[in-house]
């Protein structure tokens, strides 16, 4: 999946609320500021909209090698997520 398609898919998921958050050791990861409500879905979507290919990287999920974890860093923020059809799962959203 190319960067443009990744961007479009995650932005749509944020708008539609079709996303979950990955817990860490069975707990709500306070490093995920989207999960804790410290930032809004709109804030994250705007960050991602302004990102370019230079802000993007991906690597396999450590528990599922065929799932790509997408990382977008923009304006000092880092957003990590992956797609688990039909939804999106956020691992972290932090400065």
């Amino acid at each position: 999946m190319g960067f443009t398609e990744v961007k479009d898919t995650v932005i749509k998921a944020l708008a539609a609320g079709t996303y979950d958050h990955e817990p860490r050791a069975g707990a709500i990861d306070e490093k995920n500021k989207l999960a804790t409500g410290e930032v809004t879905p709109e804030f994250v979507a705007n960050l991602i909209k302004r990102s370019t290919g230079a802000d993007y990287s991906c690597s396999p999920h450590h528990k599922a090698q065929d799932i790509e974890v997408h990382v977008i860093t923009k304006n000092g923020w880092c957003v990590k997520f992956y797609f688990l059809e039909p939804d999106t799962v956020f691992i972290s959203v932090h400065e």
């Binding site: 609320g17 079709t18 996303y19 979950d20 958050h21 990955e22 817990p23 069975g26 709500i28 989207l34 999960a35 804790t36 409500g37 879905p41 799962v89």
Partner: peptide
């Protein structure tokens, strides 16, 4: 617990 949906935020 494997996932937390947006509505729990």
């Amino acid at each position: 617990v494997a996932s937390i949906p947006a509505q729990s935020t």
